[in-house]
C-alpha cells in the first residue's frame, strides 16, 4: 500500500491543503482562524518542497533545506503575528476581522 504512493499523491495532498487554507482565509471571520489557515497554506508549500526534494534526482538536498528554512521563517512569523493580534485585541476588544478595517 505504502509503496504505491508516488509524487502525485503528495502534490494532490499539498493542493488540497492549499485550497483549504485559501478557503479559510477568504471565508473565516475570526482572526486566529485566518492565521491557522495561512499556516495551512505554508504547510502545503512545504509539502511541495519536500516532495520535489524526494523525487527530483538533480536537486540533492535543496528541497529539504528550503523546507527547514521555511519552518524557521514560519515560526518567527507566527510569533510576530500573534503579538500583533494580541495588541490589536487589547485595542478593539474583539477578534472579528471586520472590526479591524480602520487599522
Amino acid at each position: 500500500m505504502l509503496n504505491n504512493i508516488g509524487i502525485y499523491h503528495y502534490l494532490i495532498l499539498g493542493f488540497i491543503l492549499f485550497l483549504t487554507g485559501l478557503c479559510g482565509v477568504v471565508l473565516s471571520r475570526n482572526i486566529i482562524k485566518i492565521l491557522i489557515s495561512i499556516e495551512f497554506m505554508l504547510t502545503a508549500v512545504n509539502i511541495n518542497f519536500t516532495t520535489f526534494g524526494l523525487h527530483c534526482k538533480n536537486l540533492a538536498f535543496d528541497g529539504y533545506i528550503f523546507a527547514l528554512f521555511y519552518i524557521a521563517a514560519g515560526a518567527v512569523e507566527l510569533a510576530i503575528a500573534l503579538y500583533i493580534f494580541y495588541a490589536m485585541y487589547r485595542e478593539k476588544q474583539t477578534s472579528n476581522i471586520e472590526d479591524y478595517g480602520d487599522v
Binding site: 485559501l22 482565509v25 477568504v26 471565508l27 476581522i97 471586520e98 478595517g101
Partner: peptide, 12 residues
C-alpha cells in the same frame, strides 16, 4: 465590497 477577503478570493 471594500472587503480584503473578497479581493483575495478574486486574486486567487
Amino acid at each position: 465590497t471594500k472587503n480584503v477577503q473578497t479581493y483575495i478570493a478574486y486574486g486567487a
